[in-house]
C-alpha cells in the first residue's frame, strides 16, 4: 500500500501522520504541494496545520496548490483521500466534501481530548471500530464548526455519510459534548461514494500508549485491512 502525505506551506501535522503510519508498519512518502502528480499512490492524506497561514479562509488557498488538481482527479476516479483538520477544510473548499467549516461557535481555539461516537463503521476508514463505539481522539482547531444547509444535511443522513459525531464521556451525542458548535455534532463525514473522508479530530495523535492513547489506531488499521483484502482478491 502506497501512501502519500501532502505538505503545504504551513502544514504542521504531516510528520505525526508519517509516524502514525510507521507505527503500523507502513512507509508513506511526503509530497510537496508544488508537485503535480500523485501517480502510483493508493491513499492521499491531507494533514492538519495552517496551510497558507489560514489566510482568507482555512484551506482556501491550499485548494489551488498545483498538487490539488491531481488530488481532485484522483479522488473523482475513486482514489482514497483522507483529510484531517486543515485537510478537511481543504476538502470542503474544493467541493470534494459538502458543507463548510466556520469559526468555532465559542470563538475559542479548542485543543483537548474529545469523545467521539462512531456513526458509521461501514467505511474503508472505520471498519475496525464497532458501530456506535465511543473513542477518544484530540481536537485542535479554531475553525471546526461544521455547517451545511438542511438539504445537504438530509442527504448526508440518507446516504449514511456522517462518520463521527462529538459525544459526551458517557457516549451521548449532546451539545455538552460539542466543542465547536458544529451542526448535529458532526466531527467527520465521507462523500457519497465513501472514498473521501474529512474529519476535524486528530487520530494520528493517538496511535501508541506512550503518546496518550490508541483510539486512533483503528482508522489506520481499517485502511490497511481494506488494501490487504483487496490484494487477496487480486484487484
Amino acid at each position: 500500500m502506497k501512501i502519500g502525505i501532502v505538505r503545504f506551506p504551513g502544514s504542521n501535522c504531516e510528520v505525526d501522520c508519517l509516524e502514525a503510519w510507521r507505527v503500523i508498519g507502513q512507509d508513506p512518502v511526503m509530497i510537496w504541494h508544488q508537485e503535480t502528480s500523485v501517480k502510483g499512490l493508493d491513499l492521499i492524506v491531507l494533514p492538519g496545520g495552517f496551510s497558507y497561514g489560514d489566510y482568507l479562509r482555512t484551506g482556501a488557498i491550499a485548494r489551488f496548490s498545483p498538487i490539488m488538481n491531481d488530488v481532485i482527479r484522483f479522488a473523482k476516479d475513486g482514489g482514497l483521500v483522507w483529510g484531517i483538520c486543515n485537510g478537511f477544510q481543504i476538502l470542503t473548499e474544493c467541493g470534494l466534501l459538502p458543507g463548510a467549516l466556520l469559526r468555532n461557535a465559542g470563538l475559542h481555539f479548542v485543543c483537548s481530548p474529545q469523545y467521539l461516537r462512531v456513526e458509521s463503521n461501514g467505511t474503508v476508514f472505520t471498519n475496525e471500530y464497532k458501530q456506535g463505539q465511543i473513542i477518544q481522539i484530540p481536537v485542535n482547531h479554531g475553525e471546526g464548526n461544521y455547517t451545511i444547509d438542511d438539504e445537504g444535511l438530509k442527504s448526508l443522513q440518507e446516504n449514511n455519510q456522517i462518520v463521527f459525531r462529538y459525544a459526551t464521556s458517557n457516549g451521548q451525542v449532546h451539545r455538552n459534548g460539542n466543542p465547536n458548535g458544529s451542526r448535529e455534532n458532526i466531527a467527520g463525514i465521507v462523500n457519497k461514494e465513501g472514498n473521501i473522508l474529512g474529519m476535524m479530530p486528530h487520530p494520528e495523535r493517538v496511535v501508541e500508549d506512550i503518546i496518550g492513547g490508541v483510539d486512533g489506531r483503528g482508522m489506520f488499521l481499517s485502511v490497511l485491512k481494506h488494501f490487504e483484502r483487496r490484494g487477496q482478491r487480486g484487484a
Binding site: A60, F64, T92, G99, L102
Partner: peptide
Amino acid sequence: KLLSNPVI
C-alpha cells in the same frame, strides 16, 4: 472561485 466560499 477564491475570494468567497459560495457555500457560506
